[in-house]
Design a binder for these strands. Structure first.
Lengths: 312, 312
DNA sequence: GTCTTTGATTGATGGCATCTATCGAAACGA
DNA sequence: TCGTTTCGATAGATGCCATCAATCAAAGAC
């Protein structure tokens, strides 16, 4: 099969064309381009063939653009500038002199880890636009997969989507929260079963932290059914209620900035770790995908905000 | 010398890149491009190397643009459109669906030849902008040479600029112009010397038609010195003066639309042609230059307006 | 006139885009 | 769970074509 090759226009043609137009002279243009003059002649002739008309008037001592040449010249200049711009823009993306970072998180990590990381990241890379969106774990996975998020911080487990790479950050486990001078606080150890025997204030169903409590109970196969005395749909509400009613609650450790509540007592449960439900919180990346420089830097900030897998 | 080749970006890379982005799949893109899939892989990898970052995320069943890929994509689309536009614009120039025609003329040809040609040209190619500038012969030559005019209509002689190609159109020679019932009109023949014996109305010095008269006198080596009775600086003025004073004048034949002046008598001089100065009027092109389609078409109109080298 | 400078032409060469063939991974279907 | 299919990546061979050196022809410059 005699392949009909008509050698399409290449950027090389335009580069040579622009050089000749600038030099007004094949020899000097060839010199500037570090190619031989016959090469230039050949390529320009080829370009003229592709355009269907001469681009230069070969006068005795100089060459000059024809009308068609003028048209191509303005276009070629634009084309070269576009390509340069693309290169510069991409380079800026890598050095994070521009670009955006889109992070999706589940609400519990928004208390300390993420705000700190965002702050540090913004200080270091002020030109990068940061978007942090709090959302349910499922949407988060979907958006990371769809490329709408550069990075996710979510719960990770063995049954995460196979196209997602995960990296554990810390373990989120239940702590007992007691008002000051509560009787349980006098014990050296507090067990989950002891907490469940108390009148409890819990978050409403649907909150993922509430589900964590449910799972913990199920894990211990306690015959207690979970009977919260009060249900509320905000963490702050739960905490205020505890203060004023002398009741207690169970919350994930990282869901609250405890130092803002010095009047409350926070105690780890003394059950064996295996007996406690907990969730690993971690980074979520697309499996084969390119990790944005900004996303990588942000992940580093998040890791840096944690020591030995615990906050601070 | 081991030449350090870093294979610059070519349009081929962008074409392949766009095809992959559009297809979301190397194999289908390769099919659409009529190249093999390994070729695509190789070229895209090369482009990614040039950009310094991956452009596609290779996911399991599909490929997707990275952030850098998105940036390059918008630029590449622009680049391809620019090139297409250039091609289309140049094609329009050739088919005269656009463009401009810049003609320079000496004033004598502006009477009949040029207006007719302009009219015919505009009817045939209404999309082409026509610019006709009347100017002295010297400026005209300079501007044609400088590429500021596509075509000139001027006097031509052996001593025209060596970088100008000329094509004779017609010969402009002196005619005697007499008012009705002037005594000279009764003669079968009128000689230049007889005209010079009359009281003459002539154009002022500086008009090229006046110089033609001077040259004619010099050519015949008549000892007459040229003593015009009246000098005027407009042809219409000369003609009006003749009507009212019964004087006569000498003018180039093609400088006046004689049918607009039925009351005047126009007589060729009966001298041997060699004795008469005359000017060949013709087209002037730049020597090695590209002749614009519009200019060629206009030249054809001019030629068509003349028969046997005479008007009409 | 001679010498220089211009772009065009010619024929040879090697770099690189392209091919075929193959691999390995992953998704899908039974 | 095991083929089967569908991805993209890789390896080695091939041939087109950009490139070069050498040369030519024309036209200024002196």
């Amino acid at each position: 099969m005699p392949s009909i090759k008509d050698s399409p226009t290449e950027l090389r043609h335009l580069r040579y064309f622009l050089a000749v137009a600038a030099a007004g002279n094949y020899h000097r243009a060839a010199e500037a381009l570090h190619v031989s003059q016959p090469t230039l002649s050949h390529q320009i002739k080829q370009l003229e063939g592709q355009m269907g008309t001469p681009l230069f008037d070969r006068l005795s001592r100089t060459v000059r653009l024809t009308a068609a040449g003028e048209i191509l010249h303005t276009r070629a200049v634009t084309i070269m500038r576009e390509l340069d711009d693309a290169r510069r823009e991409i380079a800026e993306l890598q050095t994070m002199e521009s670009g955006q970072l889109r992070v999706g998180i589940v609400s519990t990590v928004n208390v300390a880890v993420v705000p700190e990381a965002v702050s540090a990241f913004r200080n270091r890379y002020p030109k990068v636009t940061v978007s942090v969106r709090e959302m349910p774990m499922e949407s988060l996975e979907a958006e990371v997969l769809a490329g709408k998020l550069d990075l996710g911080i979510s719960f990770i487990s063995t049954k995460n989507h196979p196209h997602l790479d995960t990296e554990p950050l810390f373990v989120e486990q239940l702590v007992a929260v007691l008002p000051d001078k509560h009787p349980l606080d006098r014990q050296r150890k507090i067990l989950l079963s002891e907490m469940l025997a108390q009148p409890l204030v819990l978050l409403s169903h649907g909150f993922c932290t509430r589900e964590l409590v449910v799972e913990s109970v199920a894990l211990q196969q306690l015959d207690h059914r979970l009977h919260p005395a009060v249900e509320m749909n905000s963490i702050e509400g739960v905490l205020s209620t505890i203060r004023q009613t002398n009741m207690v609650t169970l919350l994930p450790e990282s869901a609250v900035q405890w130092d803002k509540h010095p009047d409350l007592r926070v105690r780890r449960l003394a059950d064996k770790p295996a007996d406690l439900s907990y969730r690993r919180v971690g980074l979520i990346w697309v499996n084969g995908g390119h990790r944005t420089a900004a996303a990588r830097a942000f992940a580093e900030e998040v890791r840096g905000g944690l020591v030995n897998g615990k906050k601070r």
